[in-house]
Design a protein around this nucleic acid. Structure first.
Lengths: 149, 149
DNA sequence: CTTGAAAGGTGATTACG
DNA sequence: CGTAATCACCTTTCAAG
């Protein structure tokens, strides 16, 4: 993982359909070298996959919310985590420090869908305590690309 | 944007390097139809781009934090937003409801880098009030793919 | 790592049903 | 939307410097 690898990852994150020739030109490598490095980066797990980036609006997902969750009973953690993994609306689920146990990033169509998630998915989990929902009014920045600097 | 488009987006999100033939087989379309639909989805903005997914650990980004920010003076919003856009460590920046103004998702190497971000980047913004940082202990789920169901 | 070459696959476009 | 055909480009692998 040298400086060239970082540049390569940065470029691959922002233009995943670029040809090896283009990537090579961007980082100063030949096509063969790009091929080899990308293969190694994927084998080592530095690059985990490739994917299209979709627009939430276009998919009708007009509501983004962060939900803070308190889980008082540790014996119910496994069930809670599995529910989060199985729920498509949950984009992220983090175990966090502070007054709450978990922080969720939830994307749904509207407030009705958010209500369904909260009442039918979240509050039905055994051992679940309070929760606190923060609605996103607008997004200034949101990139799936990791910083390489 | 019909059911096939949604399936196509779902597949493209999870396997961005699949050939048109593979995507066609997955959603029940011919290669030509996949080609046409993907082009339309990109022209309409439903698909905004393609990119590699990288591992935060591999890039040495061992610390993930959510930073709640209070911005009391509205006249300094533009400068604050620009700073967030210009800071690679800031993966997300949302304007939110509740007791805080903004919620940031910040990814850095370690606590020292987090301290640098907070003192040198964030607290130097004019008009910035209090902030509250939540550290991620572990991540149960984190996907850049939007739900299509 | 680079160059060059060879083989097969793919993206993009066209035409027709 | 499907099939078929075309062509330029691309991916992949290999050998040699």
């Amino acid at each position: 993982m040298d400086e060239i690898d970082r540049k390569l990852i940065a470029h691959a994150q922002n233009d995943g359909r670029a040809s090896y020739a283009e990537m090579g030109a961007a980082v100063g490598l030949s096509v063969s070298a790009v091929n080899e490095r990308l293969k190694k980066l994927q084998a080592s797990g530095a690059i985990t996959g490739w994917g299209a980036r979709a627009s939430a609006e276009a998919l009708g997902l007009d509501l983004l919310a962060f939900v803070h969750v308190l889980l008082e009973r540790p014996e119910h953690e496994a069930a809670f985590r599995q529910t989060m993994r199985d729920t498509p609306a949950v984009q992220e689920c983090h175990h966090v420090t502070g007054e709450w146990s978990y922080l969720l990033k939830v994307r749904v169509a509207n407030t009705a869908a958010l209500e369904r998630f909260l009442t039918e998915r979240l509050k039905t989990v055994p051992g679940l305590g309070r929760s606190h929902t923060v609605i996103v009014l607008s997004t200034v920045k949101e990139t799936p690309a990791l910083p390489t600097e």
